[in-house]
C-alpha cells in the first residue's frame, strides 16, 4: 500500500476543494472497493478525502414522485428503504443481488458508481493492464477472460463494469448529481460510465475535482413488471457473468414501454434505446423478445473464454422479459429461476 495523507472535510465545498487541491487525491466513503484496491497496490492515491461526515445520507422525495439518494446512502439502506422498495423494486432487487450483506452495509451509492472492474489482470500489478497502467497492453484479450466484456470493448481493454445496482439505475434512467470546482451539474447515468476506446484508464466522465453528491431516480410506474436476473458462477456472493434489469409497461395486452439494461457484459450498463423503442406496441411474446435481444447484442464479440456470454445473454434477456411481462420478478433468495 502506498503512503497517503488523510483529510476529513465536513462540507461538500470543502471536500471539492480538497479533491481539486492535490493531484492524485481520491475520495473514500464506504471503502469497500478502494481499500481492496489499495491493498493490491492498484489504487495509489496521494491523499484520501474521507467524505463520511458530509450530509449526503438522506433519501429524499423529488417533485415528480421519484427519489434522490444521497451519495452516502449505503446499499443496504437504499435496498431496504420502504420508498425504494415500493417505487423502485427493480433497484432494490439489483442491490440485493450484489455482494454480501456486510458489503452492502458499508458500500455507498456514490461508491457503487465508481466500482472498478473485476478483470483479473487489472487486479494483479505483476502483469500488464492498460486500465491500470496505460500502454502496458491487455493480456486479457487472449488470456483468462471468462468474466470480461463482449460489448463496448476496444483493442485496449475488455473490462466490464461489475456493479449490479448501476444496471438497475441505467434501466431506471437515473441521473447523477455532481459538484465540482465549476459548480454543480447532472450526468445521465447512461453517460456516466464510458467505453474504453483508447483511454481505458478512464472509467467515467467525472471531471477532476468532481464529487458525486446524489443519484436521482425519476418517477416510473412499472408495478410488478420488472425483474433483475443475475447469472453467476455460484448462487450468491459472486459477480455477474450476465445480468439483466428489465422493466415493462403493458397497455391493453401490448408492450407500451420497455427498458432493459445488461450487466456483466460491457464496460458500462448496456442499453439500446432504439431497440427498446422498436418493441413499443409489440405483442409480449417470445419472438419479439428474441428479436430485441439480437438488436441489443448487436456487435457483441467474444474473446475465447467468454464466448458463451453471447448465447447466455440472449437467453437471459428473453427470460427476463418473460418474467417482467408476467409480473413474476426473480427472487434473490429463492434460486430457482422463474
Amino acid at each position: 500500500m502506498i503512503r497517503f495523507d488523510y483529510v476529513r472535510p465536513t462540507s461538500v465545498p470543502d471536500a471539492v476543494k480538497a479533491l481539486a487541491a492535490k493531484p492524485g487525491a481520491q475520495v473514500i466513503a464506504g471503502g469497500t472497493n478502494l481499500v481492496d484496491l489499495l491493498k493490491y497496490d492498484v489504487a495509489k492515491p496521494s491523499r484520501l478525502i474521507d467524505i463520511n461526515r458530509l450530509p449526503l445520507r438522506a433519501i429524499e422525495d423529488t417533485a415528480d414522485g421519484g427519489l434522490k439518494l444521497g451519495a452516502l446512502v449505503t446499499n443496504a439502506d437504499a435496498a431496504y428503504d420502504v420508498r425504494v422498495a415500493q417505487r423502485f423494486p427493480l433497484l432494490a432487487s439489483a442491490i440485493l443481488a450484489g455482494a454480501s450483506a456486510q458489503l452492502r452495509n458499508a458500500a455507498t451509492t456514490g461508491g457503487n458508481l465508481l466500482q472498478r472492474t473485476r478483470c483479473l489482470y487489472f487486479y494483479d500489478p505483476h502483469v500488464p493492464c492498460n486500465k491500470r497502467e496505460p500502454g502496458t497492453g491487455c493480456p486479457a484479450r487472449t488470456g483468462v477472460n471468462r468474466n470480461l466484456a463482449v460489448l463496448g470493448t476496444s483493442e485496449h481493454c475488455i473490462a466490464t463494469h461489475p456493479s449490479d445496482m448501476c444496471v438497475a439505475l441505467a434501466a431506471l434512467n437515473a441521473v447523477v448529481h455532481v459538484t465540482g470546482p465549476a459548480g454543480e451539474r447532472q450526468i445521465a447515468l447512461s453517460d456516466f460510465h464510458r467505453v474504453p476506446g483508447d483511454r481505458p484508464d478512464l472509467d467515467n466522465t467525472l471531471e477532476r475535482g468532481e464529487l458525486i453528491t446524489a443519484v436521482e431516480v425519476p418517477f416510473s410506474d412499472f408495478g410488478r413488471h420488472y425483474t433483475y436476473l443475475k447469472l453467476r458462477d455460484r448462487l450468491s456472493y459472486a459477480f455477474a457473468l450476465v445480468s439483466v434489469a428489465a422493466a415493462v409497461r403493458l397497455d391493453a395486452g401490448r408492450i407500451d414501454e420497455l427498458r432493459v439494461a445488461l450487466g456483466g457484459v460491457a464496460p458500462k450498463p448496456w442499453r439500446n434505446l432504439e431497440a427498446e423503442g422498436l418493441l413499443a406496441g409489440a405483442a409480449p411474446e417470445r419472438r419479439a423478445y428474441e428479436a430485441f435481444a439480437d438488436r441489443l447484442l448487436a456487435g457483441a464479440q467474444g474473446f475465447g473464454d467468454n464466448d458463451f456470454k453471447l448465447g447466455l445473454a440472449r437467453r437471459a434477456i428473453v427470460r427476463a422479459l418473460t418474467q417482467a411481462v408476467a409480473g413474476t420478478p426473480q427472487s434473490q433468495s429463492d434460486k430457482r429461476v422463474a
Binding site: L120, Y123, D124, H126, V127, T142, G143, V144, R146
Partner: peptide, 13 residues
C-alpha cells in the same frame, strides 16, 4: 485459471 502466456494463476483470490 492459468494464463498460459504469462504462466500465472490469475484468479488468486
Amino acid at each position: 485459471l492459468f494464463d498460459h502466456d504469462l504462466g500465472r494463476l490469475m484468479n488468486h483470490n
